[in-house]
Simulated assay, not measured.
Amino acid sequence: MRETQTVRRKVQLRPVRPAGWWCDALLLAGLVTITLALARGALLGLDLAVSRWAFAHDPVPLYRTAQVFNLLGQGGWLLMPISGALAVAVAWRHRSVRPFLLVGGAFLLTSATIGPLKLWTDRAAPTASVKPPFLPPEEAVRIFNDLPAGAYAMSYPSGHVANAIVWYGVIAALLVALTAGRLRPTAHRLIRFAPPAILLVTTTYLNYHWLTDGLAALLLGLLLDRLLHRVPWDDLPLPGRLLRGWDRPALFTSTP
């Protein structure tokens, strides 16, 4: 009697665009460069000028509109719930737990990088000059600050922007899997790139963040997104017998 052999897919990193690690190195170098420049006092004048312009040009209709669009970056009650719901739908469609690996990986990656970086850099938001602790703008804009106890000191980098890049990338990947690769490329690009661009503008205009907070978050988010999409989620070894067959591929339904 011939034994049936299970052929495992070879585990190797997934391709990303642009290909190669040089792009990742440039993104990391850009983030380090902005951070060092801010630590040495450079770019602070630019941040102050942009913030002052935003404070001086905030008519109520435009301000309220920006607030509505800024909701696109809410992770706790928007991005993660949507990602979780899509993961459930893809998992049920393909009878696989692998969509949850992608969502869990995104959560762990963002939690391990964005939050700690915010705590380390200890930077106030622009609004710290108009509400408690009422810092002078020239002090609020400083990075590696020594802020009063209880003061908001988690402005750098912008979590809205960085999280949006990662989570809308996850949402787009899950939608591709849910539609079996039939999601139109235009819709895919719109989902991935429009929300982070909107959030970069709105968080700066609303003075929730300094301009360089958003630029640094843009670089960090793109770096994290590339790392996340390199992981071969469909090929990672899982205990198939324990999962009763729910370890089958589910995500890579089209080329990235």
Rank of each mutant, 00 (worst) to 15 (best):
L223Q: 02
I191D: 07
F193E: 12
I198Y: 07
P196W: 11
H229L: 12
L220G: 02
W210G: 11
A194C: 13
L227D: 07
W233F: 11
A217Y: 01
L211P: 07
T212A: 12
H229F: 13
H229S: 11
A197D: 07
Y205C: 11
L222G: 15
L224K: 00
L206S: 03
L223N: 04
I191S: 04
A194D: 06
Y205H: 10
F193H: 15
N207E: 02
W210F: 14
W210M: 08
Y208I: 13
T212P: 12
L223D: 01
H229I: 01
L218S: 10
V231A: 01
T204H: 01
P196Q: 06
Y205R: 10
D213A: 06
L223T: 05
N207I: 12
T212R: 10
G221A: 00
D213K: 07
G214I: 03
A217N: 01
L190P: 10
L206E: 02
N207K: 09
V201I: 15
G221Y: 00
R226C: 03
L227A: 14
L200K: 09
I198N: 12
L224I: 00
P196I: 06
I191N: 04
W210S: 07
L228M: 01
W233A: 00
L200D: 03
L227H: 03
L200M: 11
R226M: 05
W210I: 05
A197G: 06
V231C: 03
L190H: 11
I198Q: 09
R230L: 05
R226E: 02
L218V: 12
L199A: 07
P232S: 07
L227P: 10
D225S: 15
L211V: 07
L227G: 12
V231N: 07
L224E: 00
P195S: 03
T202A: 09
Y208T: 13
G214D: 09
G221V: 01
L228T: 01
L206H: 08
L199M: 11
L199V: 11
R230A: 06
H229V: 04
D213R: 07
L227T: 07
N207H: 08
L218K: 04
L222I: 10
T202M: 12
T204S: 06
I191H: 03
